[in-house]
Protein backbone atom coordinates (compact mmCIF):
# COMPACT_ATOMS: atom_id res chain seq x y z
CA UNK A 1 0.00 0.00 0.00
CA UNK A 2 2.97 2.25 0.66
CA UNK A 3 4.15 1.32 -2.82
CA UNK A 4 0.88 2.50 -4.35
CA UNK A 5 1.28 5.79 -2.53
CA UNK A 6 4.31 6.39 -4.78
CA UNK A 7 3.09 4.48 -7.82
CA UNK A 8 -0.24 6.20 -8.32
CA UNK A 9 1.05 9.79 -8.38
CA UNK A 10 3.83 8.67 -10.76
CA UNK A 11 1.33 7.04 -13.13
CA UNK A 12 -1.22 9.87 -12.99
CA UNK A 13 1.54 12.46 -13.30
CA UNK A 14 3.06 10.76 -16.35
CA UNK A 15 -0.32 10.51 -18.09
CA UNK A 16 -1.04 14.18 -17.26
CA UNK A 17 2.36 15.27 -18.62
CA UNK A 18 1.70 13.24 -21.77
CA UNK A 19 -1.70 14.83 -22.35
CA UNK A 20 -0.31 18.28 -21.67
CA UNK A 21 2.51 17.81 -24.16
CA UNK A 22 0.05 16.47 -26.76
CA UNK A 23 -2.10 19.57 -26.43
CA UNK A 24 1.01 21.72 -26.76
CA UNK A 25 2.13 19.81 -29.88
CA UNK A 26 -1.32 20.12 -31.49
CA UNK A 27 -1.13 23.87 -31.06
CA UNK A 28 2.52 24.22 -32.04
CA UNK A 29 3.42 21.24 -34.25
CA UNK A 30 7.20 21.72 -34.29
CA UNK A 31 9.35 18.54 -34.28
CA UNK A 32 11.21 19.59 -31.11
CA UNK A 33 7.83 19.86 -29.33
CA UNK A 34 6.91 16.22 -30.02
CA UNK A 35 5.29 14.73 -26.87
CA UNK A 36 8.21 12.33 -26.45
CA UNK A 37 10.62 15.28 -26.24
CA UNK A 38 8.67 17.71 -24.07
CA UNK A 39 7.21 14.87 -21.96
CA UNK A 40 10.66 13.42 -21.23
CA UNK A 41 12.07 16.87 -20.46
CA UNK A 42 9.24 17.75 -18.06
CA UNK A 43 9.52 14.43 -16.19
CA UNK A 44 13.33 14.60 -15.94
CA UNK A 45 13.25 18.24 -14.75
CA UNK A 46 10.43 17.58 -12.30
CA UNK A 47 12.20 14.58 -10.76
CA UNK A 48 15.45 16.53 -10.49
CA UNK A 49 13.72 19.55 -8.94
CA UNK A 50 11.70 17.44 -6.49
CA UNK A 51 14.70 15.27 -5.62
CA UNK A 52 12.98 12.04 -6.64
CA UNK A 53 15.30 9.28 -7.86
CA UNK A 54 14.63 7.44 -11.11
CA UNK A 55 14.17 4.05 -9.40
CA UNK A 56 11.57 5.63 -7.08
CA UNK A 57 9.70 7.11 -10.04
CA UNK A 58 9.80 3.74 -11.80
CA UNK A 59 7.80 2.11 -8.98
CA UNK A 60 4.88 3.70 -10.84
CA UNK A 61 6.55 4.19 -14.22
CA UNK A 62 7.11 0.46 -14.71
CA UNK A 63 3.33 -0.07 -15.02
CA UNK A 64 3.23 2.25 -18.01
CA UNK A 65 6.43 0.81 -19.48
CA UNK A 66 5.00 -2.68 -19.09
CA UNK A 67 2.24 -1.88 -21.62
CA UNK A 68 4.92 -1.61 -24.31
CA UNK A 69 4.88 -5.43 -24.55
CA UNK A 70 1.22 -5.75 -25.64
CA UNK A 71 1.60 -2.52 -27.71
CA UNK A 72 4.31 -4.15 -29.83
CA UNK A 73 2.10 -7.26 -30.16
CA UNK A 74 -0.72 -4.94 -31.34
CA UNK A 75 1.41 -3.92 -34.34
CA UNK A 76 0.27 -7.21 -35.88
CA UNK A 77 -3.01 -5.45 -36.78
CA UNK A 78 -1.65 -2.80 -39.18
CA UNK A 79 0.74 -5.45 -40.55
CA UNK A 80 -2.14 -7.80 -41.30
CA UNK A 81 -4.37 -5.08 -42.74
CA UNK A 82 -1.63 -3.95 -45.10
CA UNK A 83 -0.52 -7.47 -46.07
CA UNK A 84 -1.24 -7.01 -49.78
CA UNK A 85 0.85 -3.83 -49.92
CA UNK A 86 3.67 -5.58 -48.09
CA UNK A 87 3.62 -8.53 -50.44
CA UNK A 88 3.81 -6.20 -53.40
CA UNK A 89 6.69 -4.22 -51.93
CA UNK A 90 8.64 -7.06 -50.30
CA UNK A 91 11.79 -6.24 -52.29
CA UNK A 92 11.94 -2.50 -51.39
CA UNK A 93 11.28 -3.36 -47.73
CA UNK A 94 14.03 -5.99 -47.55
CA UNK A 95 16.45 -3.89 -49.59
CA UNK A 96 15.89 -0.74 -47.56
CA UNK A 97 16.18 -2.47 -44.19
CA UNK A 98 19.32 -4.42 -45.14
CA UNK A 99 21.06 -1.31 -46.52
CA UNK A 100 20.03 0.65 -43.42
CA UNK A 101 21.31 -2.01 -40.99
CA UNK A 102 24.68 -2.21 -42.76
CA UNK A 103 24.99 1.59 -42.91
CA UNK A 104 24.14 1.84 -39.20
CA UNK A 105 26.83 -0.59 -38.12
CA UNK A 106 29.55 0.92 -40.37
CA UNK A 107 28.73 4.55 -39.60
CA UNK A 108 28.70 3.80 -35.89
CA UNK A 109 31.86 1.68 -35.82
CA UNK A 110 34.41 3.57 -37.92
CA UNK A 111 33.96 7.14 -36.60
CA UNK A 112 34.10 5.81 -33.02
CA UNK A 113 37.21 3.78 -33.85
CA UNK A 114 38.88 6.84 -35.42
CA UNK A 115 37.96 8.93 -32.37
CA UNK A 116 39.97 6.45 -30.32
CA UNK A 117 37.05 5.14 -28.29
CA UNK A 118 37.39 1.86 -26.36
CA UNK A 119 35.82 -1.23 -27.86
CA UNK A 120 33.44 -1.90 -24.97
CA UNK A 121 31.96 1.58 -25.49
CA UNK A 122 31.70 1.10 -29.25
CA UNK A 123 29.87 -2.18 -28.64
CA UNK A 124 27.17 -0.21 -26.79
CA UNK A 125 26.64 2.23 -29.69
CA UNK A 126 26.34 -0.26 -32.57
CA UNK A 127 22.86 -1.68 -31.81
CA UNK A 128 21.31 1.82 -31.29
CA UNK A 129 18.75 1.48 -34.09
CA UNK A 130 16.92 -1.49 -32.63
CA UNK A 131 14.35 -1.60 -29.87
CA UNK A 132 15.75 -1.38 -26.30
CA UNK A 133 15.59 -5.02 -25.15
CA UNK A 134 17.32 -6.27 -28.33
CA UNK A 135 19.94 -3.51 -28.17
CA UNK A 136 20.73 -4.36 -24.54
CA UNK A 137 21.15 -8.06 -25.29
CA UNK A 138 23.22 -7.48 -28.43
CA UNK A 139 25.44 -5.00 -26.58
CA UNK A 140 25.97 -7.42 -23.71
CA UNK A 141 26.81 -10.26 -26.09
CA UNK A 142 29.64 -8.19 -27.61
CA UNK A 143 31.02 -6.79 -24.35
CA UNK A 144 29.15 -3.47 -24.10
CA UNK A 145 27.21 -2.22 -21.09
CA UNK A 146 23.41 -2.77 -21.52
CA UNK A 147 22.43 0.47 -19.69
CA UNK A 148 24.72 2.50 -21.94
CA UNK A 149 23.24 0.79 -25.01
CA UNK A 150 19.76 1.84 -23.84
CA UNK A 151 20.87 5.49 -23.74
CA UNK A 152 22.06 5.38 -27.36
CA UNK A 153 18.79 3.69 -28.35
CA UNK A 154 17.05 6.80 -26.97
CA UNK A 155 19.43 9.09 -28.88
CA UNK A 156 18.56 7.23 -32.10
CA UNK A 157 14.84 7.21 -31.31
CA UNK A 158 14.36 10.80 -30.25
CA UNK A 159 17.05 12.22 -32.57
CA UNK A 160 15.46 10.37 -35.48
CA UNK A 161 11.84 11.45 -34.96
CA UNK A 162 12.80 15.06 -34.26
CA UNK A 163 14.88 15.30 -37.45
CA UNK A 164 12.76 13.11 -39.75
CA UNK A 165 10.39 15.67 -41.34
CA UNK A 166 13.07 18.20 -42.27
CA UNK A 167 15.59 15.50 -43.19
CA UNK A 168 13.20 13.65 -45.54
CA UNK A 169 12.38 16.90 -47.29
CA UNK A 170 16.04 17.86 -47.57
CA UNK A 171 17.13 14.55 -49.11
CA UNK A 172 14.00 13.99 -51.20
CA UNK A 173 12.53 10.91 -49.49
CA UNK A 174 8.88 11.40 -50.41
CA UNK A 175 7.30 7.98 -50.83
CA UNK A 176 5.30 6.95 -47.75
CA UNK A 177 6.70 3.41 -47.76
CA UNK A 178 10.28 4.71 -48.01
CA UNK A 179 9.64 7.10 -45.10
CA UNK A 180 8.21 4.31 -42.99
CA UNK A 181 11.11 2.00 -43.79
CA UNK A 182 13.60 4.77 -42.96
CA UNK A 183 11.91 5.58 -39.63
CA UNK A 184 11.60 1.95 -38.55
CA UNK A 185 15.19 1.12 -39.58
CA UNK A 186 16.75 4.13 -37.85
CA UNK A 187 14.50 4.84 -34.86
CA UNK A 188 12.84 1.49 -33.97
CA UNK A 189 9.53 1.67 -32.04
CA UNK A 190 9.80 5.42 -31.33
CA UNK A 191 10.07 5.98 -35.08
CA UNK A 192 7.18 3.56 -35.64
CA UNK A 193 4.96 5.45 -33.19
CA UNK A 194 5.67 8.61 -35.23
CA UNK A 195 5.12 6.83 -38.56
CA UNK A 196 1.73 5.53 -37.33
CA UNK A 197 0.69 9.13 -36.70
CA UNK A 198 1.52 9.95 -40.32
CA UNK A 199 -0.66 7.14 -41.71
CA UNK A 200 -1.41 3.43 -41.62
CA UNK A 201 0.84 2.56 -44.59
CA UNK A 202 3.79 4.51 -43.29
CA UNK A 203 3.23 2.95 -39.86
CA UNK A 204 3.07 -0.55 -41.31
CA UNK A 205 6.24 -0.08 -43.35
CA UNK A 206 7.90 1.18 -40.18
CA UNK A 207 6.78 -1.76 -38.03
CA UNK A 208 8.00 -4.24 -40.62
CA UNK A 209 11.31 -2.40 -40.91
CA UNK A 210 11.68 -2.29 -37.13
CA UNK A 211 11.03 -6.02 -36.80
CA UNK A 212 13.28 -7.07 -39.67
CA UNK A 213 16.06 -4.81 -38.55
CA UNK A 214 15.88 -6.18 -34.98
CA UNK A 215 16.25 -9.70 -36.34
CA UNK A 216 18.99 -8.72 -38.81
CA UNK A 217 21.04 -6.70 -36.31
CA UNK A 218 20.80 -9.32 -33.57
CA UNK A 219 22.35 -11.77 -36.03
CA UNK A 220 24.78 -9.39 -37.80
CA UNK A 221 26.52 -7.68 -34.87
CA UNK A 222 27.42 -10.82 -32.89
CA UNK A 223 28.66 -12.47 -36.11
CA UNK A 224 30.74 -9.43 -37.07
CA UNK A 225 32.12 -9.10 -33.54
CA UNK A 226 35.07 -11.36 -34.43
CA UNK A 227 36.20 -8.93 -37.12
CA UNK A 228 35.28 -5.68 -35.39
CA UNK A 229 36.55 -6.26 -31.87
Amino acid sequence: MDEWGIALPAIIGTVAVYYGSRVLYKRFPFPFLLPIVTGTAVIVLFLAAAGISYPAYMIGGKWIEHLLGPAVVALAIPLYKQREVLKMYAVPVMGGVTAGAAAGILSGYFPAKWAGIEENLIAAVLPKSVTTPVAMEVSASTGGAPALAAVFVMVAGIGGVVSAAAFFKWCGIRHELARGIALGSASHAIGTAKALENGEREGTASSVAMTLSAVLISVLIPSLAFILF
Partner: peptide, 18 residues
Protein backbone atom coordinates in the same frame (compact mmCIF):
# COMPACT_ATOMS: atom_id res chain seq x y z
CA UNK B 1 28.22 9.68 -33.49
CA UNK B 2 24.99 7.82 -32.61
CA UNK B 3 22.89 10.75 -33.83
CA UNK B 4 24.76 11.24 -37.12
CA UNK B 5 24.75 7.50 -37.72
CA UNK B 6 20.96 7.50 -37.17
CA UNK B 7 20.58 10.07 -39.96
CA UNK B 8 22.83 7.97 -42.20
CA UNK B 9 20.59 4.94 -41.56
CA UNK B 10 17.48 6.99 -42.44
CA UNK B 11 19.12 8.25 -45.62
CA UNK B 12 20.39 4.83 -46.74
CA UNK B 13 17.24 2.89 -45.88
CA UNK B 14 14.95 5.61 -47.29
CA UNK B 15 16.83 6.11 -50.55
CA UNK B 16 17.27 2.40 -51.20
CA UNK B 17 13.60 1.71 -50.49
CA UNK B 18 12.41 4.65 -52.58
Amino acid sequence: IAYISTLIVMLTAGWTAQ
